[in-house]
Nucleic acid binder design. Structure first.
Lengths: 188, 188
DNA sequence: CAGTTGGGATTATCATCGTAATCCAAAATT
DNA sequence: AATTTTGGATTACGATGATAATCCCAACTG
């Protein structure tokens, strides 16, 4: 039954990725350790050989998810024509696809309000993710407008959260569109 | 032991208000029906004489909280000097006091990401609260800029969520300040 | 004022969850 | 090859949670 070192590392990675998706989809309180393990194709017994607690997994899963999102946004910005980097980041973040797939998306939007109540590692991870996003946005802003990056990131997160909260599809789309069109105005 | 009709209505109201505060503080999954009842000075047994389920209470509590916030913001706008209504709303919403007291504040920011995963009544209540906020903001925008209201509301919510998520007090303050200064620019 | 009703308390049920102890066999180590 | 580690499975434990049945007594109804 035992796996080699390398395989064990893969197993661990698999747990983290599975957890990152599951937590973004169901919330950290919405899925149990046991179900995460089952989803990863394992039994729950071995869990504490990998992580010291559920919170430790949450922290790692969030960090992984935040990295994933930052990388995707950075790639979108790089792909964009010159001068359109910021708009590309905003458009990618506020796409209907992102709204409809929280399990693959930004952990700040998916878990922000719950993780804000945590102390310790998970909250830390989230804070670093936020800073990461701000730095990415700031790269595409002129020197003298760096401060606007914070408001832009806030606007992106809030628009996604509200768009997901709205039952009415049309209204939800309108929220995304309004933010896509208006947020770039925040630097001028 | 039994209370009169009027007293029973007060009891019910008390449960809703207690729940509204508790859910915003701990999250809907962070406090049990029993603890909400205890907090309201009651035992948990009588709960289902008032509400059909925990979700029903969550929905009512959210609706109450959202009304509370909308009223406060509307009052702040009315108190403001002419032409400063929108800025007053934004400043009130993005005050450090609001950030530091989620249990008295906006339910969208406190519960948005969890309630977005609900179906049914709680999600509905949240959606209506969002629209309420948009309408309030729109009142203080010129006719031809109504669409910006959605982006502004999104920006407000997101800035508060991120400010709460950040461990670093200074950085958190900076997020609030950036949004306060920049969000009004969204109509121009 | 007698009878009915329905708030609210007490207690129970059944499920779930985080955590941990134990065990086994295969991989590291020597 | 013998010995030691250690991933991962099995199983257990204690706590907590949502929901419900039951009961009591005071407030309504007539």
């Amino acid at each position: 039954m035992r796996k080699s070192r390398a395989e064990a590392a893969l197993t661990r990675e698999k747990i983290v990725v599975t957890a990152a998706n599951a937590y973004r989809k169901f919330g950290t309180g919405g899925i149990s350790v046991q179900d995460v393990m089952k989803e990863a194709g394992l039994t729950h017994g071995g869990f504490y050989k990998h992580f010291s607690s559920k919170d430790a997994l949450i922290a790692e899963a969030c960090a992984w998810a935040l990295d994933q999102t930052a990388n995707r946004l950075a790639a979108a910005a790089r792909r964009a024509p010159a001068g359109q980097g910021l708009q590309a980041i905003i458009d990618t973040y506020l796409s209907p696809a992102h709204r409809d797939h929280p399990e693959q998306g930004c952990a700040i939007a998916a878990l922000g309000s719950e993780l804000a109540r945590y102390e310790g590692a998970p909250r830390c991870a989230l804070g670093q993710g936020i800073q990461q996003l701000v730095e990415l946005v700031a790269e595409y802003l002129p020197e003298h407008e760096q401060d606007a990056a914070k408001a832009i990131v806030g606007g992106m997160v809030g628009a996604l959260v509200t768009a997901r909260a709205l039952d009415d599809r049309q209204l939800s789309d309108a929220f995304l569109a309004s933010a896509r069109q208006n947020l770039v105005r925040l630097h001028a």
